[in-house]
């Protein structure tokens, strides 16, 4: 691309990000500070994920970008176009065909393999931020593995509502050591992170943090023995493909309370519909 390096970032910046990624992988769940750059997209719109993707991407990669599980949401389109433009890489909407998947708010329904890397866009990497706004304080809590604050929050939820009310960005313990934000994925997706064969990388551009979960690493939602973590999912089948195990978007279809439920993962849904058509013929 005219005047810019492959994948936009200059080589010294890529090296700096790559060093941070490697330390993140060596210390699963630990937030590694990095010198995040200003990107040509706004902070909060995926600049952390974009920088991680730009630092790992090669000409042979096949990139998939999703937002809310879908390839055709506006920001997913915008980021995919950015990489087509600055790196010229092949892009795909098919989960199976991608080598690198950048995501906001979802983990694909199709299980990922060891040959794939999942890059999450992270708005607030600090899982304790809603309980303690000072990063100087939370840094000490991580150093001491002192997560009492979060346990108290979960305890209070259960005492008040009967169960934990965190429905997305559910805090997880990684490798038994670090409390980590899984990014604002629905709690439904949380268990997919545990011992996932794919490498999971997390980029927070505005907050200037990178963290990682290596393949086959334990990721456990924080819970209590007598109040184990439970999934929430709309109790419906997908109106398009009939799936009863996928995460659903609720679509309001009129102003008299009608709604339909469809797969949030558009590739998964399309794939299933393709399969069903194949079965019918």
């Amino acid at each position: 691309m005219n005047g810019y390096n492959f994948a936009y970032l200059d080589e010294p910046t890529k090296r700096m990000i790559r060093r941070a990624i490697l330390k993140a992988v060596a210390i699963p769940g630990h937030q590694v500070p990095f010198g995040a750059r200003e990107m040509p997209l706004p902070y909060g719109w995926g600049t952390g994920g974009i920088q991680v993707t730009a630092a790992i991407l090669g000409a042979d990669d096949v990139l998939k970008v999703i937002d809310q599980g879908a390839d055709d949401t506006t920001n997913a389109v915008s980021i995919r176009r950015f990489f087509s433009h600055v790196a010229g890489v092949e892009t795909t909407t098919r989960t199976r065909d991608a080598t690198v998947i950048q995501t906001r708010h979802r983990i694909p329904e199709t299980p990922l393999t060891g040959d794939q890397i999942l890059v999450y866009q992270v708005p607030l990497p600090e899982p304790l931020a809603k309980l303690e706004p000072s990063r100087a304080e939370t840094k000490q809590m991580h150093a001491l593995a002192d997560y009492g604050l979060m346990h108290v929050k979960l305890y209070e939820d259960i005492a008040r509502f009967g169960h934990v009310t965190i429905s997305y960005d559910y805090p997880v313990m990684v490798n038994g050591r670090y409390l980590m934000s899984p990014s604002p994925i629905p709690a439904f997706d949380t268990l997919k992170m545990n011992r996932m064969p794919a490498l999971q990388l997390f980029g927070a551009g505005r907050e200037k943090r990178i963290y990682a979960v290596p393949p086959y690493t334990t990721v456990r939602p924080l819970d209590f023995d007598d109040h184990p973590f439970s999934l929430t999912r709309a109790p419906h089948a997908c109106a398009l493909c009939g799936a009863t195990n996928s995460y659903l978007d609720e679509v309001v279809t009129d102003d008299r309370g009608s709604r339909m439920f469809v797969c949030s993962d558009t590739d998964y849904c399309a794939d299933r519909r393709g399969e069903m058509e194949g079965d019918a013929s």
């Binding site: 909060g44 809310q68 604002p184 995460y247 659903l248």
Partner: peptide, 8 residues
């Protein structure tokens, strides 16, 4: 940006 997955 869309947040409908979280909102759901």
């Amino acid at each position: 940006l869309p947040h409908y997955v979280d909102f759901q």
